[in-house]
Amino acid sequence: MTLYLKYKIKSFLTDKSSLTWGLAFMEFWVVMWVYVFTPEKPELSWNYRLEDYLKVNSAIAYGYLGTLSMSSVAVGLASHVIVTSAAVTYATKFTKLSPKKYLLEDFVASVVGISAYALAIILSMVALTFARFKVIVVPDNPAAVLAEVILGGAILYWLGKLVALASLALGRARFQLLSMVPLFTGFVVYSSLWIDPGVYVYFIPLGPLPSLIISSSTGLKPATGGWLRDWRSWVNPSSVIDPALGFASLLVWVVLLVLASLALLKKARSAPIEEVALTQ
């Protein structure tokens, strides 16, 4: 391992744009969710205890807000790929950061960096729920939640790479629009809080992710969407994600994004220093 891994993680965690849109803005919605959108005394039925309600309520929040947070960070990752394109070409040839080392360290650092934002949303949701209701809403299966967050980070890493490589290959005038693709994807997924995409959820990048996180956190069946339409349907959703198909969908998206990135890699040309200065 080289210092690249350490500094790349550090750059994710100190990037002003990511901290603003991926953390501070999302934390605002976490606060709103806990203190404004969650009723003081929810109407409970079917032997639902307050603890159960809060656990599902917070899992929905961090499942969706965490995904949106990671999508925001991926926008920054895409611009980072563009401004470092020349340095990566040079360093992988003429320093000990060989292409294999670079791909490994860049992937690990980026997934750690992206996932850290989702984990911060999870932790703050748990902390604020405790602060207001004195109830600890720790996920039932934290290891599965962590794995799902990392898988989401991997998809967004390759989506960010693909967007950057596409703009390098097609011409950087298109970058303003293309760079928003990860965030746009995040909002499409976020909309499934109200709109149930049904079986189409498998065809959306990151589509099954929030529901799988909610399921791993609460033990509920993962609904294909519409979590906020009626909280009484949480126990028996009308349409359910098959967990195996859900994970397969996420993995297939990773593979598709990797293949598309590799196809664009040869056509991408590095960015000159003038653009580096303008985009930082």
Partner: peptide, 14 residues
Amino acid sequence: LAVNLPEAYILVSL
């Protein structure tokens, strides 16, 4: 080989 082109040394925002 080493070069002094500035864009070759912007690998991470540091």
